[in-house]
Structure formats: C-alpha cells, structure tokens
Nucleic acid binder design. Structure first.
Length: 579
DNA sequence: GCCGTTTTCGGCCCGACTGTTTTCAGTCG
C-alpha cells in the first residue's frame, strides 16, 4: 500500500530536516502527516486529489507532494534532501539517547556517517572532547548500539499484554501502590507494542521505584528517579513506571495513555479555552487554578467533551466526533454471544465437542459454530463431504441434549487457487454457516487474489470470509488485495467479514475494520480456536473492533443464535437448522 | 508546514531525567 511508503518518506524527511536543524514545527508537521497518512482507513490512491487537504495535517504543500508522488513515483524536494546527507547517517537516530543534535555534531565534527563508524569511534574514546560528550555518553552510545543489534522490534499485543499483567500483579502485591494501571499504546490496544507503560499512585513513591527496579524480570535499569523509572526486562521490552499523587491520577493516565497526537489535540483545545493541561491536571491559565485531574473524565469534561475510550485516542476523528456528540458506543467483550470460527479434533483442533461446549459456556456464550477445515487442506486433516455430514449428525445428537446452548453446523472451507470453493453447494447448503478463507496461493497477483475473494463472496452459501488479508503479525505480510473492492462486494452480497481475534492475526485489522464499517459491511469477531484456551483470544478481537469504531450492531455474533442466522447469508426465510 | 470562536500571520504541548554543565541542552515519552 502506498500509504505506508508515503508515511515512511515523510518520516525520513522529518529525520533529515531534524539533523539539519530545520524549524521544529515544520518537522512536526511532517511527522503528523506521516501518522495520519499511515492511519488513513483507505488507500491514499483512492482519495480524490481535491480532498487530500481534508486529511488532518495535510495542507496545500503536502497535498501537492502526495499528488506528485502518486503521479511520478517521486517527490522532487525529497530527492534534493537526500543529496544533503548520507542515508546511513539516519541510522544514528535509532540509537537510544542519541538524537538529531548529537547526530549533527558527530557528522560535522568527526564526519561520522554510519552506525559502524560511530561504534568504532565510541569504542576508541574518540567522541570525548566534543561539546557535551564525555565518557558516560560514549558508554551510553555503545550500550544503545548493542541493544539495537539485538533487535528490539515491536512485539504482538498478545505477547506483551500477559507480561504487563504479570508485572502489574507483582507490583500490586509487593510495592506500596494504591492504584496501578497499564497506560500507553498497550492500554489503547495497538496490535503491536514497543514498551509497557505503567502508572501508579503511592504515598511512598521511592519505595515503589525500589521494588520496581529490583523486579526479577529486570535486565537493565535505564532511568531511575523518584517519580519515573525505566527498565529493560529479559523479554527485551522496555517498561516505564510513573508514580503520581492521587489528585493527579486521571490527568496522568490521560497523558500517559496518549496517543501523542491525541494529547496534542487536547492541549491545543485547552490553550484556546484559556486552559492548560499537563500530567498533573487541567488548570486555568490566568490564575493556575486546578479545575480537575483526579479522574480521567475530569480532563474531557472541562474541555466540554464526553469521555473518549482509550482505543479511539489516535487523532483519527475521535475529537471531532466527541464535539458533535457522535462518538460510537463501542462493542464490548460482554456483548459477544458466541464464536463462529472453532476447530475441533475432527480437523486440526485438539478438543472434543463436549470440551468445546464446556469452555464456550464458561465464556458466557450461547452458541459456537464448529468450522473444521475442508478436504483440500490435507495438512489440517480437512474433512471430506461424507465426514462433514457425519459430523453434522453427531452435532445434532449433542444439540438434542443441550439446554441454553447450541452448536452451529459450519465449515471453514478453502477458497482454491482458481477461486472455486472446496465443497459443492449441495453440501454447503446443509450448514448453518460457511466460513471461507484462503490458505494457499498467497503470491498470486493483486488482481487474481481479489478476484478469488470476490468469487467466493458471490457464492450464495458463503456467509463469512475468515482472516481476509492473511497477514501474520511479524512474520507474513497481508496478501495483495483491493480492499475497497472486497468491502464493496461484501456489502453487495451480504457476506460478513471476520475480525480474526488470534493475537498473531488480528485480521481484519483496525483500519480495515473502520473502513468496512463506513462501507456498511457486516462483521463478526471470531477466535479461530484450535485448543479451548484460545476462546480467551476474543478480548483481542474486541479490542481491534473497538479501535475500528465498531458498535454492537456492527458485529453479528453479538446476536442470539436465531437472530444471527437470520442475518447471516443466505438469509433463507424461516431458516431453521438444528432442532 | 499546518491552521483559524483572538489570527491568512504568528503562533505551534509539556515535564522528568541524564550528563554535562556552574545554569542547561538534549532526549524521551
């Protein structure tokens, strides 16, 4: 997608301008534009030229640069900038504690232009003597480079959240904290996380910090102050802990939850109203009178806004919606009534039907759909038509004995490379739900893959497309698809799209979900459970849905089974299945 | 470079910690 590429270019322009010592506000403008272009819920190519400047942070100049890029594949101003500084120099900025000012100094004074050179100079103590640099700084630079080499990438939400929870529990038990919460991008439930931000209140902040830096998990202490400390844990994640007074907790929580872009918008609003916001509260500018800050809601209330849920705080229109009283009532985990993508022992799952029913009931569900793989997917022990029908008979028998719970008859049928469906219609029509998905031929062209999906959605029996883009976070990119076309056909055919809640998929992702909703597409949130523990993934899926602004009414499996089946394709009148 | 219930010019978010400084710049979030 061009969005990501443009975003990268804008960020690189910002980096280059920063090292060159350009106007900081101009630099911020490029960074803001980068964020907004990347977070755009549709491809930048689909935005009409005249509407580009309606994107927040895009004015006349940047709209022109975007158009230039889309038309010619280049931005002349960017090409010129590239000749000013060597590309490798930019890598210096990724060293923690080394910023643009230092990079400029190193380049000007010592002609250092790459990480390797920097490492050599630092190791040979050739940096000392430069203005503001002595031994300690050299040491920090070497440490930073070592850390970079170990590779500190963003990690999946599903890996980081459990770690954060366990640190939180430990601090609750062993440190004198009154309140403690997760903040930062983790609280906003971004799909990948760079560091864990924690916020606490305490009468004895120094003691809290002592406990924190001595946690068993801690590999290295980066910063240790009375109200703020940062450490690296063995899982190669940075954890920041901030302690504030009880009276400031809400303001601090807002502040440390971010996003940065959201906070800047709030502060700009405050300034226009003669107010000031910091992590200690919201104040009247003229006499510094504190108007609130103990509760997070205080900040929004004083600004005249309703409370904005963390998942929306990305400066992607939530402030405008809040001003208009048009914030969505986001779907919650409690709204979920069932799971429509579940594998059993019959294919590549590990649980029996009975065990799945038991686990699903523990989640508070009233139904699940058994959706084992189809025959073409031999690696997953896909079912033949005969086995599929045998499975249905067995499920029917169990259903007869169940009270207040229902097993739906389904399949996760393979969409073959030629776009055909791996079961005949005669079999599909005997099921309650047909979940279709792609498992092979990922490398076909965008046109071919889109066509495959469209063909599948046009099949009258296919009710849901599972993990529509096929991406695996951190290991496999989404396959090439014309998502606008997918959403259009999904709407037209009444096919639902899945938000796959597995923390390594989260597919659709948040921006796709948001766009799908805008286009009127129905969605479901499913876990793709293979072992019963994985029903617990639902929370991740709901988080993604919330980040996509989805409400209960946008998600079909918030419905009880009878109503659900009426909404699921093929919308058979008086449709009945199990009893 | 963006943006407008003060403004099409002149503003642009705010504070903690570190390492280098004898009062502060740089970095980070």
């Amino acid at each position: 997608m061009k969005n990501r590429e443009l975003s990268r270019i804008f960020n690189e322009i910002a980096d280059r301008l920063e090292i060159m010592g350009d106007n900081p506000f101009r630099i911020r403008a490029y960074r803001r534009a980068a964020i907004n272009v990347e977070g755009l819920p549709k491809s930048i190519e689909d935005v009409p030229e005249k509407e580009l400047s309606q994107i927040p942070g895009i004015g006349r100049d940047l709209a022109g640069k975007i158009t230039e890029y889309l038309k010619t594949g280049k931005i002349r101003a960017y090409e010129e900038l590239k000749s000013e500084l060597p590309k490798e120099l930019l890598a210096l900025l990724s060293v923690p504690s080394l910023g643009p000012k230092t990079a400029q100094l190193l380049y000007k004074e010592l002609h250092i232009k790459s990480l390797d050179e920097l490492e050599r100079f630092a190791a040979e103590h050739k940096l000392s003597g430069l203005r503001g640099i002595k031994e300690k700084t050299e040491e920090n630079i070497l440490k930073g480079i070592a850390m970079l080499k170990r590779g500190k990438e963003r990690q999946p939400l599903g890996r980081v959240l459990p770690i954060a929870d366990s640190i939180l529990e430990h601090l609750k038990k062993s440190a004198p904290v009154k309140k403690i919460d997760i903040a930062g991008s983790l609280r906003r439930r971004k799909e990948t996380i760079k560091d864990i931000d924690l916020l606490a209140t305490s009468d004895r902040p120094n003691e809290v910090m002592e406990v924190f830096i001595q946690l068993q998990d801690v590999k290295e202490i980066l910063v240790h102050g009375p109200t703020k400390s940062s450490v690296i844990i063995y899982e190669d994640l940075q954890v920041d802990l901030r302690v504030v007074e009880k009276e400031s907790y809400g303001a601090a929580l807002t502040y440390f939850t971010g996003s940065k872009a959201h906070n800047i918008r709030l502060r700009e609003m405050a300034i226009r109203m003669g107010l000031k916001i910091n992590e200690y509260g919201i104040f009247r500018e003229k006499d510094n009178k504190k108007l609130g800050g103990e509760k997070e809601d205080d900040i929004y209330r004083v600004l005249g806004l309703p409370y904005i849920p963390p998942e929306l705080r990305e400066d992607q229109g939530e402030i405008e919606a809040a001003l208009k009283g048009a914030l969505p009532h986001l779907v919650t985990l409690k709204d979920m009534k069932g799971d429509l993508h579940v594998h059993s022992k019959w294919s590549d799952g590990s649980a029996t039907f009975e065990r799945l029913v038991e686990a699903a009931r523990e989640q508070g569900y009233s139904y699940i759909a058994i959706t084992d793989h189809s025959q073409g997917l031999a690696v997953a022990r896909g079912l033949t038509v005969e086995r599929l029908m045998e499975q249905k008979r067995e499920l029917q028998a169990i259903n007869k004995k169940l009270r207040g719970f229902r097993l739906l008859y389904g399949t996760e049928v393979d969409i073959r490379s030629d776009g055909s469906i791996d079961f005949p219609d005669s079999a599909l029509k005997k099921l309650d739900t047909v979940v279709a998905s792609i498992h092979s031929g990922f490398r076909q062209s965008r046109q071919q893959l889109t066509w495959r999906m469209v063909s599948a959605m046009k099949n009258p029996h296919v009710s849901i497309i599972a993990h529509p883009t096929g991406r695996l976070i951190g290991s496999r990119d989404a396959y090439e698809l014309d998502m606008e076309e997918i959403f259009r056909v999904a709407k037209e055919t009444g096919t639902a799209l899945e938000i796959n809640a597995s923390p390594f998929r989260l597919d659709l992702n948040d921006t796709h979900a948001k766009r799908a909703k805008e286009m009127g597409v129905a969605m479901v949130i499913s876990t793709d459970t293979h072992v019963t523990d994985q029903f617990g993934f639902m929370g991740y899926g709901v988080s993604i849905a919330r980040r996509g602004w989805l409400e209960k009414s946008d998600v079909l499996n918030t419905l009880e089974p009878d109503k659900l089946l009426k909404k699921l394709k093929p919308h058979k009148a008086g449709r009945q299945s199990s009893h």
